[in-house]
Simulated scan of single mutants.
Amino acid sequence: MGLIGSAIGAVGSIFGGISASKAMKKAKQNVQQQIQKNQDWYDRRYNEDATQRADAQRILTMTEESIKNRNRQAAGTQAVMGGTEESTAAAKAANNQALADATAQIAVNGEQRKDQIEQQYLQRDADLQNQLQQLEIGKANAISGAVQGVTQAASNMPF
């Protein structure tokens, strides 16, 4: 291999190393953006108020409507049948307990949802961190390959 061939080999190795380094840098930026998006998603979803979600609001609204209907029925029964104030109060207390139970169930479901969100976030974060690690290994290998190419090209140069 002549001087020109060795110089071309060295330049090729340097160029290849630079190209690989640029590609790795772009890939790393992409993974870092994904990490930020994952963090934003986690922060938004984990901190949601479970009682304000549409499904929870629907359950609460349906429970409240059911309670109102039962309270009206209890009051109507008392007026027509001559029930006692105690029976109406007991019905209202039972209805209030139903609302408390629905709210408690929403809170339990909210905690389970948070656990699922956290598990999904941690798995995704581990995957992304692994991608970053692989990129760093690839970058080190590209640099090592470029250095070896330059060294090999230099050793082939006739002095």
Rank of each mutant, 00 (worst) to 15 (best):
G5H: 11
G5E: 12
S6H: 03
A7F: 14
A7L: 08
A10D: 02
G12E: 08
S13P: 00
S13Q: 05
F15R: 00
G16D: 02
I18H: 04
S21L: 14
S21M: 13
K25E: 14
A27P: 00
A27M: 04
A27R: 07
N30W: 06
N30Y: 15
V31L: 04
I35E: 02
Q36G: 03
Q36E: 15
Q39C: 05
D40Y: 08
W41Q: 09
W41D: 14
R45A: 15
R45N: 15
R45Q: 12
Y46H: 14
N47W: 14
N47E: 02
D49S: 01
R53W: 05
A54C: 00
A56H: 10
Q57M: 05
Q57A: 05
R58C: 05
T61G: 12
T63R: 04
N69K: 12
N69P: 13
R70S: 14
N71Q: 14
Q73K: 06
A75P: 00
A75W: 10
T77W: 07
Q78K: 15
Q78A: 12
G82F: 07
G83E: 08
E85A: 13
S87V: 14
T88Y: 12
A89T: 11
A90Q: 09
K92Y: 01
A93C: 02
N95I: 04
Q97S: 05
A98C: 03
L99D: 03
L99R: 05
D101M: 07
D101L: 07
D101A: 10
A102W: 08
I106G: 02
I106V: 04
A107H: 11
A107V: 02
V108S: 09
N109A: 10
Q116P: 02
I117K: 04
E118W: 05
Q120W: 10
L122D: 05
L128S: 03
N130C: 14
Q131N: 09
Q131R: 11
Q133Y: 14
E136P: 01
E136S: 10
E136Q: 12
S144Q: 03
Q148A: 13
V150D: 02
V150M: 03
A153E: 05
N156G: 13
